[in-house]
């Protein structure tokens, strides 16, 4: 028996919004430590890794490890049926071929359940090595989303250059060129507004704007985003989900032809 309950459906809606543009389907691996999903996007350029810890749920029970392959478009249709303040419970029997989403209104007067067929997906798990990154940038997630959106107008790819002075995002194309520089903030009223840089060595890498923009769909999950970079290895874009886990996106840098 698997059962996981969240007080608010909003968080699950936001998680789905953060992955459904990149993935058509995904396998949710459930164990007593929580729920994990790892999947490459359709073109195999980026990787999504979602971790939701069992202690972050209002209620969590997982008697036996189960893997639930879900069509994310179908899941999105079901989650649309939940109000933001509904409690959501995800339930499945051991070896089941369906999963049930149950939504309860705050006053418990409306209860709805939606059963969805599970899929058998060919899952190809990738081992992600522990890496000490040369540069780790933390910045407001909305700021990163804005920069990605703005620079995508100029080019398909964006250069991210990180030094101890700051981080620079650049794009150039037929229209012209764009540069956005962010310095490390000295003092801020709110922690969420801070830009911080931990640098061992300066790094300059090029990434496809299309994927970066897809990652920023996770912005509603977290006020801050963390970018971890080293030469010649994939960028990690991480959004922490408060008290519940995180979503990480890995993107291979572009290489000069």
């Amino acid at each position: 028996m698997f059962e996981a309950r969240l007080i608010s459906a909003t968080i699950l809606k936001k998680i789905l919004d953060a992955i459904k543009d990149l993935l058509n389907e995904g396998t949710f691996d459930c164990s007593d430590s929580g729920i994990q999903l790892q999947a490459m996007d359709n073109s195999h350029v980026s990787l999504v890794s979602l971790t939701l810890r069992s202690d972050g749920f209002d209620k969590f029970r997982c008697d036996r490890n189960i893997s639930m392959g879900m069509n994310l478009g179908s899941m999105a249709k079901i989650l649309k049926c939940a109000n933001n303040d509904d409690t959501v419970t995800i339930k499945a029997q051991d070896n089941a071929d369906t999963v049930t989403f149950m939504f309860e209104s705050p006053n418990h007067e409306k209860v709805s359940d939606y059963e969805m067929k599970l899929m058998n997906l060919d899952q190809e798990h990738l081992g992600i090595p522990e890496t000490d990154y040369s540069c780790v940038v933390r910045m407001p997630s909305m700021e990163f989303a804005r920069i990605c959106r703005d620079l995508a107008q100029f080019s398909e790819s964006m250069l991210i250059c990180c030094t101890k002075e700051g981080v620079k995002f650049s794009a150039s194309g037929d229209v012209g060129s764009a540069n956005v520089k962010l310095a490390q903030t000295s003092s801020v009223d709110k922690e969420e507004e801070a830009v911080s840089i931990e640098m061992q060595e300066p790094v300059t890498l090029t990434f496809a704007c299309r994927y970066l923009n897809a990652f920023t769909k996770a912005s509603p999950l977290s006020g801050q985003v963390q970018l971890s970079m080293s030469a010649d290895v994939p960028l990690v874009v991480e959004y922490r989900i408060q008290d519940l886990g995180h979503i990480r996106y890995y993107l291979a840098p572009k290489i000069e032809d």
Binding site: M40, L126, P234, Y250, A252, K254
Partner: peptide, 12 residues
Amino acid sequence: MQPTIASYFQKS
């Protein structure tokens, strides 16, 4: 050129 992510991480 855009390499795939699988070229960086090994299958486990």
